[in-house]
Design a protein around this nucleic acid. Structure first.
Lengths: 338, 338
DNA sequence: GGGCGCAATGTAAGGGCTTACATTTTGAAA
DNA sequence: TTTCAAAATGTAAGCCCTTACATTGCGCCC
């Protein structure tokens, strides 16, 4: 479509009878312009409906005041709360947020990262750490500060603002075992390219092994994060000849999907099968029975990630921050029937 | 932080021993460059880790291939599905999506719109139509095509891709009345600046009036879209001296919030009070009793909105599209007790 | 009244890319 | 081989800002 001529800085300058520099200053540092001049300029600005061209601005100023975030999905609530807090903090500091989603696809994530960087973001929020080395090298080469959230590791060359998925999952598995469960299954998220899902699975494995429960009796089904897929996974597990007494789910969406399917199959939760989740999103309070799950401090993590990024931007350095998770016991986990 | 020198088009051109024009062409229209040349250039591109500067690109080309969307919130699932479909369609057409959220605040929305436009979006997706005239004038003046989604009106100077909130809500209210309810209340969304919430309330009012149910006995409480706020609204209504037998809720989040609170107060749904929702997000299948609600074809609407926008971009014109909604009956609505 | 210092404003050089138009190269036909 | 249109490539103007530096204006002191 044909673009019409939009008013430019120069148009404003001409009409207000000042130089472009003065107009620019009126917009970015008003206090450096005499008020009489400023008023005249601002009047023309609104009269013409002038809006500065972001691209030109970015190019001339060599910064954008914009933070980028690439999250796996906006389609379920896992990241919503944390991202909301992240965004609020970014705004509070006078910057903007650009969000892109990758649909849990590595290739897509890389594309989004490049696109955000091309758009000049000053820093990046990424989820987890499972991505090609090249991406990190690229970020280093371009000196783009980044923070990895929703996971945490002690000894790694990145800045993490998150929690230990392995440990949290280990603790949950231990709890399940303490309740007396010996035949345990897991509906895990797809672990390929998803370090959180991977770590959560690994945590459960470790807990079983530490309790001398053989891996052979441990049934794992990976599933996409949808009710339906999780339901299918549940059905597969429930139909296994040695039906487990507890299913640990990689997140709340999976757990709720399992519970819904259980109901439609007439399987009682938790009497026949206990189910646990992970994330503690609102859903887990809505479903019945209430979901026993791992609470993650989403909002604090989001805020903290924003601050870590600003610190990196200002001081060229920043450090990781670890959050503790906590198991919230509701009704979906109980002791196995005798 | 000090910005280092990033490779530019010119760096690539020099090292590949061609002109900047050729490099540019390699990137944007590869078929216009001889393959031997192209390969040489692309090699240098990846060697240098070159990424075009988006701002410069936008400025020179005078378009960005980017669509913007301003939605009220990402914090609940109302817009998630539709937006996801919107985004998929945008991607399919080779464009990008920039999403901003306004927290249901008019001022914030205007800011976000301006910011997206400054960033050069070629078109905009907005939710509903309740905003200052100045914003529409501004969009016209800048020739930015826009589409209004999640609502639909016959006679208005905008392009709508949505459904008739008034009618859908009217139908739901009629159904409630047909079940025999005479004392009805509504937990409405905040209607200020939210035409969907407003229309849904108006629809219920009309239905009551058409059935000769006096408005005086109709209790309305506006509530934010959170479980807790909705719970408070529910409590207020339940404690009313003439407790209604049915509560029509402005959306599913409100309805679920009401149900949760009802449970904690020991009020049986639907035996003591029937409850209905609107939107048919996943939540309504999770809660117990299952929520009787208005189904909205989120995905089709999102896809259609994207196509309407592309049509507007290409042909300078586009037309509205109306979707039908449908009441999904689950268990939360039943006849009142005698 | 002259001089000084600071505040206000102006000048103009980029910043990295696209693309219209100009020029060169290529390869097929004569 | 020559010729010439088409294909490939090059040249350079322009897109719209910010900001370092230069200039002007102004109030005040001696």
């Amino acid at each position: 479509m044909e673009k019409l001529q939009l008013p430019t800085l120069e148009d404003v300058a001409r009409q207000a009878n000042v130089s472009t520099a003065t107009v620019s200053r009126c917009l970015s540092r008003p206090d450096t312009v005499r008020s009489s001049t400023r008023e005249r300029v601002m009047e023309v600005v609104s009269e013409l409906g002038y809006t500065p061209n972001f691209g030109a601005q970015a190019m001339a100023a060599r910064r954008t005041n914009t933070i980028g975030a690439v999250i796996p999905t906006m389609d379920n609530a896992i990241f919503a709360k944390g991202l909301q807090a992240f965004q609020e903090e970014i705004s509070k500091q006078g910057a903007n947020l650009l969000v892109a989603s990758s649909s849990y696809k590595k290739g897509m994530e890389e594309k989004q990262i490049r696109s955000l960087i091309a758009r000049g973001v000053d820093g990046l929020l990424l989820i987890g750490d499972d991505r090609d080395k090249e991406i990190y090298e690229y970020l280093e080469k371009r000196h783009i500060p980044y923070v990895l959230a929703w996971n945490y590791r002690d000894k790694a060359p990145h800045t993490y603002v998150g929690f230990n998925n392995f440990q949290a999952s280990y603790d949950m598995a231990k709890l399940v075992i303490d309740y007396g469960h010996r035949r345990v299954a897991m509906i895990a998220g797809v672990t390929e390219g998803n370090d959180r899902a991977f770590d959560r699975l690994a945590g459960v494995r470790q807990a079983l092994s530490d309790s001398n429960i053989p891996q052979e009796s441990f049934l794992v089904v990976e599933s996409e994060y949808s009710f339906d897929a999780a339901g299918n996974a549940f059905e597969k597990i429930a139909n296994n000849e040695h039906r487990p007494t507890a299913i640990i789910c990689g997140n709340d969406v999976l757990a709720v999907g399992a519970i819904i399917r259980a109901k439609s199959l007439g399987i009682n939760i938790p009497e026949e099968i206990s189910i646990t989740g992970f994330d503690d999103i609102e859903l887990s309070t809505v479903v019945e029975p209430g979901l026993t799950t791992v609470h993650v401090p989403h909002r604090r993590m989001g805020t903290s990630a924003a601050n870590a990024l600003f610190a990196a931007l200002k001081e060229q350095k920043t450090r990781s921050r670890k959050f503790e998770t906590q198991i919230i016991q509701r009704q979906s986990l109980t002791a196995p029937r005798k």
